[in-house]
């Protein structure tokens, strides 16, 4: 893809029109639900120098006489809330609210880059981890200091309680962005990470500069 292939105006205007992410909040387990915020409330994410100050208290879930407090992971506004569930016993994994999160410049760049980078897709619905060797290299040189070539053992796929190595079979390049979280199940076909061939790095840089310049 070349720079001129990218219709920046179209992409940017799309984000300008709706510069938000809509994040669904699901209950992580069963229990009696009590909301601590109302529709329209502003919420804070995790803050502090060491990311040690928890975000705004969103709701409380009481199970086995343990009222557990759940806080917001991101900043934004309560967009939808299942007020009908207030005080009710809810199941695990129930969507109880949506947070409207104003995208930061960095997040927008990430989203745009997703369209430019070559995605590496999940071969199966499974949990993924970087392979031990790759993780070690990432820890040492940083994510973008590690280049991939076909045949490299890149991931460990945890499937049916068995770990299977996944060998990289895409174009050589560096891992620019990671989209999965270790240990969290990924649907088959979802991108796991975005790869950028070395010769396209400058294009990426230009895109970043351009978005930075045009977005304020």
């Amino acid at each position: 893809m070349l720079e001129q292939d990218i219709d920046f105006d179209a992409i940017l205007s799309r984000y300008r029109a709706d510069p938000f992410d809509y994040l669904a909040v699901h209950t992580s387990h069963t229990g009696r639900l009590r909301f601590k915020v109302a529709k329209g409330d502003q919420v804070e994410g995790v803050t502090g120098k060491f990311r040690h100050i928890p975000g705004t208290l969103l709701y409380e879930l009481e199970r086995e006489r343990n009222p557990k407090r759940f806080t917001s992971k991101t900043n934004g506004q309560v967009d939808m809330i299942r007020a009908d569930l207030e005080g009710n016993f809810v199941e695990a994994g129930e969507q109880i609210m949506t947070l409207k999160h104003p995208l930061t410049k960095r997040e927008i760049i990430e989203y745009i880059l997703r369209q430019v980078l070559t995605p590496y897709k999940a071969p199966e619905k499974a949990k993924y981890f970087f392979s031990m060797d790759l993780q070690a290299r990432v820890d040492k040189y940083g994510l973008r200091g590690v280049s991939l070539k076909p045949g490299d053992e890149v991931l460990t796929m945890s499937l049916m309680k068995r770990d299977t190595p996944v060998y990289y079979d895409g174009e050589p390049g560096i891992i620019h962005s990671v989209y999965f979280k270790p240990g969290v199940s990924v649907e088959q076909g979802e991108p796991l990470f975005g790869v950028c061939p070395k010769d396209r790095l400058s294009l990426i840089e230009r895109i970043i500069t351009r978005v930075k310049a045009e977005w304020d």
């Binding site: 992580s28 387990h29 069963t30 229990g31 199970r63 086995e64 343990n66 016993f89 199941e91 695990a92 994994g93 129930e94």
Partner: peptide, 18 residues
């Protein structure tokens, strides 16, 4: 009833009580 895991006793007992 949907629970977080078959191995979470807390969810199972919460459902049992409910």
């Amino acid at each position: 009833w949907r629970v977080a895991s078959y191995t979470d006793p807390n969810d199972i007992l919460a459902v049992a009580d409910h």
